[in-house]
Write a protein that binds this DNA or RNA. Structure first.
Lengths: 225, 225
DNA sequence: AGTCTATTTATACACTTGCACAACAAGGCC
DNA sequence: GGCCTTGTTGTGCAAGTGTATAAATAGACT
């Protein structure tokens, strides 16, 4: 392979060809390339040149869309968090289903692809590892966590109401914290060592653990006639 | 402030004074300085010069003890994992206590200081975020995880035996996975947002969730006369 | 087709990084 | 005390970093 990919016949100092993409598209591509780079090489390996290469542009262009690397990373993280919470909550918008079914579906959705995903986990861990030093990161996490937990708490309240059981705010909060922990813990293991579990196993474990936490009677099997 | 901290009266090219520490001591100091640097500035900020500064030596010395930065980071991670698992398991070596008490003590120990610790969490997240790309890291995590889970499984078996309940291997495994997830999930939240929980609250939530998972009857309060 | 503008490339620059190596001195040994 | 080993420092270097800026050109508009 020649040392230049330029097919120009003469060694005229020809420039690289390029296309002008829409602004929003370019920004989106750059953010995606950033997330890819961070997931693959970590924060240290995500250099402007690496990111630009992945996005199919040259490094200088990044400065045209972002004031600096810091801001690019910040926007990339915001995008990631938004995507994660959006996906996680999407499983809750089932109409015409019993609260208990909605809860089970929520757990199942959170413990299978695409939420169980090694790349997303890498990104989450890489960024959250900086939360101590970066208050903005810590704040973003807390927002996402509390939003998630509130969703859980609402479903739990529905489930208990449907079972005609009363629970005060403190009990509700504890249930939500525990259920959140169960989902988070199983999510981590699924992402880190997915092949150690058979398909659907994590979701089954999660549902059982959550229902035990709420003191729900185990569901009946189809009774023998 | 003068641009040199050297109190030498003349500008003779005097060298910095130094002491020869024992080999093991120096290595330990360098590893500790590495962990501090990673926790504070992330992998990208943990440069040889930063680490050396923290350890009170100059950068060149690191090469005398480690073949390269890579190996230093690897040894630092090994040290970290060893310390974490050691602490976590230490709570299990209670003689003369009922299995249920040992389980509760285990959970309590894992959900309070020093295991709930923002610095350790930062380190864990930073390193584990590279597990996808680095098989050595992934392997180290899996070893630690499985070791931890086996400990949990053993205690669970004891607890169920004491309650005269039988559980097959599959049920035992599922219990261990779920309990591990509960502890992990609560550990993360405690590390990331410890001030959101009152002292002992996480442990109380964890114990309740685990006992529910195992189907243990809630402990009696002091009965009214 | 010609013009114009803002997207994109390319180059330059100051700075940092990990690593190599020569000079040096701390502390044990005689 | 004098010497010798080796732990330790200081300096140098090539590669890579983020940022700044000039030069080029794609594509819309007339």
């Amino acid at each position: 392979m020649p040392d230049t990919a330029n097919p120009a016949p003469m060694n005229a100092p020809s420039r690289r060809k390029f296309r002008r993409e829409g602004e929003e598209r370019r920004r989106q591509d750059l953010i995606e390339a950033t997330l890819d780079s961070v997931a693959e090489h970590g924060l240290q390996g995500a250099t402007l040149r690496t990111i630009a290469l992945r996005a199919g542009v040259t490094a200088g262009l990044i400065r045209h869309y972002f004031p600096g690397k810091e801001e690019l990373l910040q926007e990339a993280y915001t995008t990631l968090v938004g995507r994660m919470t959006e996906q996680a909550k999407a499983a809750l918008v089932m109409e015409d289903a019993s609260p208990r079914q909605r809860l089970a579906a929520f757990i199942t959705a959170n413990l299978n692809a695409p939420i169980i995903d090694a790349r997303v986990f890498s990104l989450w861990a890489t960024f959250i590892g900086r939360a101590n030093a970066d208050p903005a990161l810590a704040h973003a996490h807390r927002e996402g966590y509390l939003g998630f937990r509130n969703e859980v708490e609402a479903v739990v309240a529905d489930v208990l109401a449907a079972e005609r059981r009363k629970a005060d705010a403190s009990q509700l909060r504890h249930h939500a914290i525990a259920i959140n922990a169960i989902i988070d813990g199983l999510w981590i293991e699924g992402c880190l060592a997915g092949e150690m579990f058979s398909p659907g196993e994590l979701a089954a474990i999660g549902i059982r653990a959550v229902e035990a936490e709420l003191g729900l009677a185990p569901p009946k099997h189809d009774p023998e006639p």
